[in-house]
Amino acid sequence: MMVAARHGRWTAVLLAPSVGLIGIFVLVPTVLTVWLSFHRWSTQTGFGDAAWIGLGNYQDLFGIGSVGRDFRQAMANTALYAALSIALLLPLSIGFGVLVHQARLRGAGVLRTVLFSTYMVPMIAVALVWSKLYSPSEGPLNQMLGWVGLGPSPFLSSPGTALVSIVFLNVWQQVGYFTVLVVAGLTQIPDPLYDAARIDGARPARLFRSITLPLLRRTLLFSGVIALINAVQVFEPVALITQGGPIGSTNVMTYHIRRVGIERAQGGLGSAMAVALLLALVVAVAAAFALARREPEA
């Protein structure tokens, strides 16, 4: 069209910084991760010292030894963490999004800003503050549970509740972001659709089920994928507060891979774990897309 080959040199010059940086610091490491996963390699040595062991690392991951047990527990913890996060974030963000979108609501803009502001807070601060909120005796959350005749809950200090407690702080931090995504989706639904349905006598619940939800599907699919990828990255609360415990109940993949691959310098094994995580993510995202495509018939 407008720009012909005469800009070829400029095309290369302008692209070089981004493509070079992303190539060297993202694409090459991704390929290296896959390559290293077939090697025994200490992270303290050069890539040239890696020794080919075929599927050895993967056999360890799926074998009966402690390496496999820890890995599978971290995988299961991460899956549970992601599933719970998504299961809470999506409905809450729809609820808040519809709420903020109400023209009748005074201060809707303020609410949106307050909700979104938590997304600006560094995760490390979120983790520290919530560890104090969760504190068994000096924390306000158990005090409030006491007021309504519940608790006290051990929160972060019991294997049964620790992971869920981290899910809650994650949801608190991120729900405002997903709310803004839902609001963006809601503004794209044409008002005449609702008007027409109302004339036909549809009630609010029916409008929500038959118009709002179906037309939000693309937004929700996107939200779900982003929530999943964010959930896999949970690190600070685990590294600082629980160290993966109690009894491994909060040992999640990002923490586990870093501990194995960097701290214990088992680079090959850690890379195999990273590849397994990536494959699991690809499968999960593909499944989400397939599900979203199939739903209209249901």
């Binding site: 069209m1 407008m2 720009v3 012909a4 800009h7 070829g8 400029w10 095309t11 302008l14 692209l15 981004s18 493509v19 992303i22 610091f25 993202v26 694409l27 090459v28 490491p29 991704t30 290296l32 991760t33 290293l36 992270t43 890539f47 994928v225 990828i229 896999v232 990255q233 993949m253 990002t254 891979i257 870093r258 691959g261 960097i262 680079g267 850690g270 890379s271 990273a274 590849v275 995580l277 990536l278 993510l281 995202v285």
Partner: peptide
């Protein structure tokens, strides 16, 4: 604004890296 062969493919590869969790590349990086 520029047109060149492979533009779509290169853009898709760049875009894909947006969805890569940092832990996947942490060790070699």
């Amino acid at each position: 604004k520029h047109h060149f062969p492979g533009r779509g493919a290169l853009f898709a590869v760049m875009l894909a890296t947006m969805f890569l969790p940092p832990i996947v590349t942490l060790i070699p990086l």
